[in-house]
Design a protein around this nucleic acid. Sequence first.
DNA 1: ATGGCCAGATTTTCTGGA
Length: 254
Amino acid sequence: MKIATWNVNSLKVRLPHLLQWLAANPVDVLCIQETKLTDDKFPVADINAAGYEVAFTGQKTYNGVAILSRHPLTDVVRNNPHYPDEQQRLIAATVQGVRIICAYVVNGQAVGSDKFAYKMAWLAALRTWVQEEMAAHPDFAILGDYNIAPDDRDVYDPVEWAGAIHCSEPERAALGELTALGLTDAFRLFEQPEKQYSWWDYRMMAFRRNRGLRIDHILLSSSLAKRCTACTIDREPRKWEQPSDHTPVIATLD
DNA sequence: ATGGCCAGATTTTCTGGA
């Protein structure tokens, strides 16, 4: 079973990329973020025609998440029951016995800002929900755009980014609290090349210069971590015309 | 060359992203 995550940065713009990528990478489950579409505009027929069921929750302009699956999706939950939120950032479903959460974590804008406080409160509530879901479902995975680089090696210039949004101590501590529930960063289960990132700024030729951050993650429960045989970042779609600024991350489970 | 973005709104500039 292959599970993947990709922040598409507007599904309206990126639908052709999504379909092209799925044709070349027929993963079992794909979690997408930043669809930026209300539910009535979600391209269900195109995704079904590609061989995927889909569960989604969206809004106009911002946020929006979906889970695509080649297998039946059951027990869909939209949003965190412990955190009433207008912003559509979370959706959960069960696929072949695996409980999946697709997450678009708050950006936070700047350390100390109101949006940063929202990010921290949102992450604390996420932890409560994840703890509950893990208790009910030992085979558990949470995939998405965390907007947090876990470690300095996940940052192209850790000195320039020291203490900044996505890299600050409170954010890394919050991610640590989440993984302390018994989750493992699938990417770090394996030897990886240096300077592997999942996002690059559109500006300043950041992709060409590999000035990126690794902020998109697949976290696995211990039972799934044992089944995990690979985790890779696919840089290819970032090279395509009019790309998302994020690129897919894929984990293979036995 | 250390720099020159992108998507969406109800657009002719702004917000938010990361």
